[in-house]
Amino acid sequence: MIVDLAIYAGCFLMLVGAAFCLLASVGVLRLPDLLTRMHAASKAGAVGGGLILLAVAVLSFDPAVAVRAIIGVVFILITTPLSAHLLARASYGADYAAKNNIAADEMKSKSGPN
């Protein structure tokens, strides 16, 4: 019974994770400029990938695999904001980030990242 419950919980996590992954890629396709796309990729993508790894941890029924999967989740949560931040900083300086359709830009006075 407990095993069945764990399987259902894992299935739920996996479906939610896959849905977030799908939403992240739709967001990367639909959103109008680089910085807004970055929101979709870094938030929905990280949550989606993390939830799928969490589902693997629940569904494996093996402590060794579960610990590795959870370490993977922690790794994703640490690295995703790092890479998003570095990419945003680099592309803002390189003028890749669209600066015209933006409501306010208080970074303009500064001449790019140093």
């Binding site: 910085l35 970055m38 929101h39 870094s42 938030k43 990280a46 949560l77 640490i78 995703t80 904001p81 790092l82 998003a84 931040h85 945003a88 900083r89 803002y92 970074m107 500064k110 990242p113």
Partner: peptide, 15 residues
Amino acid sequence: LANLITLTPGTLSID
């Protein structure tokens, strides 16, 4: 703080 901001609702730290 910068890393936390990136993963929270609607905000992304740049520089």
